[in-house]
Computed example of a mutant assay.
Amino acid sequence: MPDQDLEQATAREDLCRFLAACHYEPDAAFAEEKVFDSMAAAAQRLDPQLEAGARRLGEAFAAHDLHALLVDYTRLFMGPPSPLAAPYGSIWLSGENAVMQESTVALQGLYGEAGFEVDEELGEMPDHVAVELEFLYLLTFKQNEARRAGEEVAIAAWDQLHDLFLRGHLGAWIAPFTQAVQAQAQTAFYRELAALSARFVQMEMERLPRP
């Protein structure tokens, strides 16, 4: 793999991992560990719009106190009485206000093929947006690892899983989900996170071969 491609491949892994973290409950550690600086550095190697979005995200996090972010996180993704932007793929894919639908079962099948397990301590459903982004990170990591090693069979297998996952799951519902977040968020942080996530996943979709 050429050096430039390797640099971009690693940047895609990093950005995906940071986006996943930001979809969990906001934490002061985001600033302490300079997550947004690292995110912007990764985005810079991929796309100017991604970099600008990552920098705005960091600025928005710094502009709000943690309590305001926690309140917005709760009303957007948890409720009560129900979340304003449900972070579960099954709800957006089925059009029904219910989780653990057929799409979730299919998703768990892909997780099993990849050897991916959802940490039970997280207390999240398998199709939570953060979990799906973590799975996308794993798939991207495995694709890049196989390409560095020149393992053609492994490359084909990971590419297929990556394709199936994006077309049938995260890539199929990220747009309406992020639109709902942008429409309902009270803080700039979650509006910027939604825009950045949508842009990144769309770029990943554009990398897929035409069906």
Rank of each mutant, 00 (worst) to 15 (best):
A28M: 11
A195S: 14
V99S: 08
G150F: 00
R210L: 15
Q184P: 01
L50S: 09
A21F: 02
P83S: 10
H23W: 15
Q108N: 11
L57W: 10
F141K: 12
A28Y: 03
Q143F: 00
E117F: 05
A68D: 15
C16Y: 10
G115I: 04
F165H: 12
A63H: 09
E151L: 08
S94N: 08
L46G: 09
A114D: 01
H67Q: 14
L70P: 00
D5L: 14
D27W: 07
T104S: 13
H64P: 01
E151F: 01
M205H: 07
M1K: 08
E51G: 07
E32H: 07
E124M: 06
E51W: 03
D163W: 06
G109H: 06
E33W: 03
Q44D: 14
A20W: 03
L15Q: 06
R75M: 08
F30H: 14
A20N: 03
H169Y: 04
L164C: 01
Q182T: 07
S82D: 10
F36A: 12
D119R: 13
L50N: 05
H64Q: 15
L76V: 11
D127I: 00
R147N: 00
P80M: 12
R167H: 13
L107A: 07
A63R: 13
D27L: 10
R17N: 08
R12F: 06
G123L: 03
H162M: 02
E151P: 00
L76R: 06
D3N: 05
L6I: 13
V201N: 07
A42I: 06
V153A: 15
F30E: 09
T140S: 11
S38F: 10
G89V: 05
C22Q: 07
L170I: 14
E13D: 10
G112C: 04
L84M: 14
L170N: 01
C16R: 04
L19K: 08
Q182D: 07
F30Y: 15
E124P: 00
L57F: 10
E120H: 04
R191D: 02
E32T: 09
L208A: 12
L107H: 04
A149Q: 14
M205Y: 05
P2H: 12
V153T: 11
T178L: 09
W173L: 07
L166G: 03
L19V: 11
V99W: 10
S103R: 04
S90V: 09
L50A: 12
N97K: 15
M1T: 13
M205A: 11
E51P: 04
G168W: 01
A106E: 15
G89K: 05
A195H: 03
S38D: 13
A20P: 02
E206W: 02
A60K: 05
A154D: 10
Q184E: 15
R207L: 14
A40K: 09
A157D: 04
R210F: 09
G112P: 00
D3Y: 01
F36L: 12
F189D: 03
I174G: 04
V129N: 02
V35D: 02
L57T: 09
L170E: 02
Q4Y: 08
L50T: 06
S103W: 01
L208Y: 11
M100G: 02
A114E: 01
Y88F: 15
A86Q: 05
F77I: 09
M100R: 14
P176F: 06
P209C: 13
Y73E: 06
Y24N: 09
R17V: 08
D159G: 05
A149C: 00
D27K: 12
D65M: 09
A156M: 01
E124I: 01
